[in-house]
Simulated assay, not measured.
Amino acid sequence: MNYWLMKSEPEVYGIADLERDRTTIWDGVRNYQARNFLRSMASGDRAFFYHSNASPPGIIGLMQVVETDLVDPSQFDASSHYYDPKSTPEKPRWQTVEVEFIERFPSLISLDTLRQNFSPDDLWVVRQGNRLSVMPIEIPVAEKILAMAR
């Protein structure tokens, strides 16, 4: 099992939405490196849910990857912000995964707290200027985050 960090703005889709829905596809990723990380995921992998563009931003919960290698349908929707006119059903450019809610942490682990506990090499989200919405997390770092959450 691998660990990941996946960002979403709480006004767009937050942990409360996932808790209500129980599962969702993680659509709208339009960065090739983040897309490649999505392609690397396996069923059973765990992902930290990170509220971005929030006050404060931080890790708020945990989810599990339940299905991989899904075609992101938003790339074909001309009314979507994530529409990609170069993508076709025969040659889709964007894949995604389905995730399932596991838990909401008792309190958010803020970006400031993460910066105090991890180096930029340990946890990419604390790197200055990092805008990736999907990133890997090494198991020892994930275990430390889980300990902090509980």
Rank of each mutant, 00 (worst) to 15 (best):
M1K: 11
W4G: 00
M6Y: 08
K7D: 07
S8P: 00
S8W: 01
P10M: 04
P10G: 10
V12P: 04
G14H: 10
I15P: 06
A16G: 15
D17C: 05
R20M: 09
D21Q: 08
D21I: 00
D21P: 12
I25D: 07
I25C: 03
W26H: 02
G28T: 06
V29K: 00
R30P: 10
Y32R: 13
Q33S: 07
Q33M: 09
F37K: 01
S40Y: 11
A42C: 08
S43M: 13
D45T: 01
Y50G: 06
Y50F: 05
A54T: 04
S55K: 14
P57A: 11
I59A: 10
I60A: 08
G61L: 02
M63E: 09
T68F: 13
D69N: 12
L70Q: 10
V71S: 11
Q75N: 13
F76T: 03
F76I: 03
D77A: 02
S80P: 06
Y82C: 00
Y83L: 02
D84W: 11
S87D: 09
E90P: 02
K91P: 11
K91N: 14
W94F: 06
Q95H: 15
T96A: 05
V97D: 05
E100V: 01
I102D: 08
E103R: 04
E103F: 04
R104Q: 11
S107Q: 08
L108M: 11
S110V: 03
S110Y: 01
L111T: 12
L114T: 00
F118N: 00
P120N: 05
D122H: 05
W124A: 07
V125L: 12
V125H: 00
R127H: 04
R127I: 12
R127W: 07
R127S: 08
G129V: 05
G129P: 08
R131W: 10
S133G: 11
S133Q: 10
P136L: 13
P136D: 10
E138W: 09
E138H: 11
E143T: 07
E143F: 00
K144D: 09
I145C: 05
I145T: 00
